[in-house]
Write a protein that binds this DNA or RNA. Sequence first.
DNA 1: CGATTTTGACCTGCGC
DNA 2: GCGCAGGTCAAAATCG
Length: 636
Amino acid sequence: MAKGSGLPIDSDPIGFFIHKPTVLNSFEEDFNNNNKISNNSINSMDASSTIHHHERSPPHHHHHHQTLQFPVNLNYTHHKDNNSPEPSDEKNNNNNRTVIINEMDFFAENRNRDIKPSPSSYHDMIDHHKSFNEQIDIDMNVNTGLNLLTTNTSSEQSMVDDGVSNDAAAEDKKPTTELVVLHTEFQRVKSENQRLKIALDQVTNSYNALQMQLYITQTGNKSDEKVLEDGNNNNNDHDDDQNINLTNGTNINEGKVQPVVPRRFMDLGLANNGEADETSLSSSEERRSELVKNGHGGDDQMEKKEVNRALIGREDSDPDQSSQAGWVPNKLPRTTSSGSVKDSDQTEATMRKARVSVRARSEAPMIADGCQWRKYGQKMAKGNPCPRAYYRCTMAAGCPVRKQVQRCAEDRTILVTTYEGNHNHPLPPPAMAMASTTSSAARMLLSGSMSSSDGIMNSNFLARAMLPCSSSMATISASAPFPTVTLDLTQSPNPLHLQKPPQPPQFHLALQQNASSATTAAAAALLPQILGGQAIYNNQSKFSGLQMSSLGQENSLAPTTVAARLLGHHSFSSSSPPQNSLSESVNAATAAIAADPNFTAALAAAITSIISGTHSNNVSNNNNNNTNNNGNNVNV
DNA sequence: CGATTTTGACCTGCGC
DNA sequence: GCGCAGGTCAAAATCG
């Protein structure tokens, strides 16, 4: 190819899919769609239940059904796929007098009613759930699933009118006792439902509190700085609002947490210490400003390199990085050299550039992550016939975020996107999903890395588990050369599109065994962020979820399975706390933060939307204001 | 004409 | 010191 041919991305230089670049759907659209769909599958108890939705889904939509699990055991039974459940039939078909409801039908039926299927926020989900329960209470002729069979109230009457009461009359008042029993049972279930509602509220509150705690921990006393740093607060406020909603899928604390998430969009180089982080942020941003003013400011390259080498030991030289104004590696040494966190100097020095790798099936040249990217290089990497492309974020001058895009050698339908660096600018909501995911994953990784008491990170502490492309694992790895979190989304982005997913997506997190309980808990507390704010307890045998194993003794310590079903293979079991705990603190922190199943769904929806967006042809470029019209940059 | 892509050259770290 | 590999630069070409 002639140099400077300016070959458009249509030629798919990275992959081998010569095709017209797919114009991706608006991310928000996808996201909303996902949320809508997600509602349909609320309370689905098993994979089979999810298939019902899938079958009814319009084929052309990206219905990345996520099964949202509420911590409520409603004991639903799925028995049919009709859109309009007919209670009488159900009752007739049920010898146990268990009124059955297909909750998906229920939601399908109520979708156009007062239950709004857009739980893009946690509170929406809560409201949604409450509405659902209210519907259960009110709409008894439709519902149950509570194994209810009672009479007294008007709503209850409808349940027993057609079949049960007749039988009762025919059997000569015998049911008096039975009715009492059933009524008692009904009351019990009702109270159980109430208790669960209360529990849900408590969980919500706990989550909010922990969210705030997490924020405080991460940002320390720098929250004011954050605001001041941002010369354009008004503009960012809006973004912040959106970011909250779309990042965590919550509206948590409304105004309280708003400054939290939006500020750091990608913290791949983030130190565990919030102070350090903010320090680095400030300094790096100052540097950015200076360098932006002075062009690429290559004068101090050598000086920076020396600093890097002195402070980081083995660090990518990346001569241009310093010239790229605010490139992440510069942040760590600066952070440590600031003296704010001396104890973590060693640790941070050990921490190399954290990377988050996202593996996804996509025929598009890039996955739509909502950012604008400019290609600055392409290389043939060893062991892979597919070239690796290097992009840097162009959404703001001097944004240090870069990413590499390369197709998997073994399965070229899989696109591996590796993110690195911190955005120094607000991101559009669509970009928040991926940014927040990768940020959280990186933070998680770094937290785990720093949990070592001596700061020495075994480069092989977690054997690189990035196996063949078919791997469905999402792996956190600190193996050389860079600590990397790999989110493997190569499994169907829409688990509901799979009849029987062979294996649920997983997160493997290896925490060092000698981590203090505090740091372990901190790391555990971050787990939900990886999952968009959620991890779900469950039986280890039920899913292989996020496993927290000990360094070096992964076999000696039963892993705590903090199940996290990234892509919606939910089988939430609120009554099944982890049996094998790594530590109580882990459990406590994780339980408190991870109690919200909506996060997984929201995150999964976001990610699957991103991924699926690459499969779809749509018109997002119509909204693309950037000048890149080659299909590389997708404003979603 | 500015933004973007291409691509050979260059830099750096690492292993031998 | 040399070769290799990863990563980046920057001139030239291309695109809208």
